[in-house]
């Protein structure tokens, strides 16, 4: 315990000392860590951050539903669903390959210029769609690996009880698969939370764009640090929540936890 504390103090102290004693430190402190500019930029960034949070909250359930749908389409064995399976494969291949930022540009600028009746032109709408499309491809693969990790004997057991394939998926395979993929799913969602900041590049007033606006006007980069803190504060509780969920399942279902 004592050794651990001493070692931590020594390492952290050394690192801080190294940074603080660097020749550029006073300049860095002035341009990145100015309390005045932090306070001044805070309200605008907070306003913008709600846009990130809103976008995340809208996109997340859509991504989960679409990702699971894509994974199930790839698992289907019915000959009637072959076209659906092909679309699911193509979807994952194409949208996982396109950088998310490029997808944001393509949809935000491309879709409204089609000039179709009834197609929304809102930047927020198409930026959210871009995130949903891009992340659903990742999440579909996560779900698929979860589904494939469930032992075939579970399906045999469901078959033997007379369950249809759809019922076996719904009541036996998917519930087990979802429990297993919660940690990698969380990883994707932390990543999604951060990628909502990509919409700053299409001039939506999110947290990052607000910070950039302030920084460019006042020649001070402190708002970027404020934005970073916002995102960290958002992700940490999500990580703890998932840990807690995982522990609860483990305690209830695994003999080893007894």
């Amino acid at each position: 315990m004592l050794v651990a504390t001493a070692a931590t103090v020594l390492v952290v102290g050394g690192l801080v000392l190294g940074v603080v004693s660097s020749p550029g430190w006073p300049t860095v402190q002035e341009t990145f860590l100015d309390p005045f500019h932090a306070r001044e930029s805070f309200p605008a960034i907070l306003d913008g951050f709600w846009l990130n949070v809103t976008m995340f909250l809208i996109a997340e359930p859509l991504i989960l539903a679409l990702g699971l749908g894509l994974a199930l389409a790839r698992q289907s064995r019915s000959p009637l669903l072959v076209p659906l399976r092909a679309i699911a494969v193509a979807w994952t291949d194409v949208f996982r390959g396109i950088p998310t930022l490029v997808l944001v540009f393509l949809l935000v600028f491309g879709m409204p210029s089609l000039g179709l009746q009834g197609v929304p032109t809102s930047i927020f709408f198409w930026a959210t769609v871009a995130l949903v499309v891009s992340y659903s491809a990742y999440v579909a693969e996560v779900f698929r690996s979860g589904i494939e990790s469930v032992h075939p004997s579970q399906l045999a057991s469901a078959d033997a009880l007379g369950l249809s394939r759809g019922q076996a998926m719904r009541f036996v395979v998917v519930p087990q698969a979802v429990r297993r993929v919660v940690p990698p799913l969380l990883n994707d969602f932390v990543s999604l939370q951060k990628d909502t900041a990509l919409v700053a590049s299409v001039s939506l007033f999110d947290a990052l764009f607000s910070a950039r606006d302030y920084a460019n006007f006042n020649f001070n980069y402190t708002p970027y640090v404020v934005v970073a803190v916002f995102f960290v504060v958002l992700t940490v509780p999500l990580a703890r929540l998932t840990d807690a969920l995982g522990r609860r399942y483990a305690e209830r279902e695994r003999a080893g936890a007894r």
């Binding site: 004997s153 045999a156 009880l161 007379g162 009541f171 036996v172 279902e253």
Partner: peptide
């Protein structure tokens, strides 16, 4: 299959369901 009952060597119970839910699913 719904008219036959099958028991496997490795039990193959559904681990995410309680014993009661395992028995009432079918």
């Amino acid at each position: 299959r719904s008219r036959m009952g099958t028991v496997f060597q490795a039990y193959n119970l559904f681990p995410h369901l309680t014993v009661l839910d395992n028995c009432t699913l079918a």
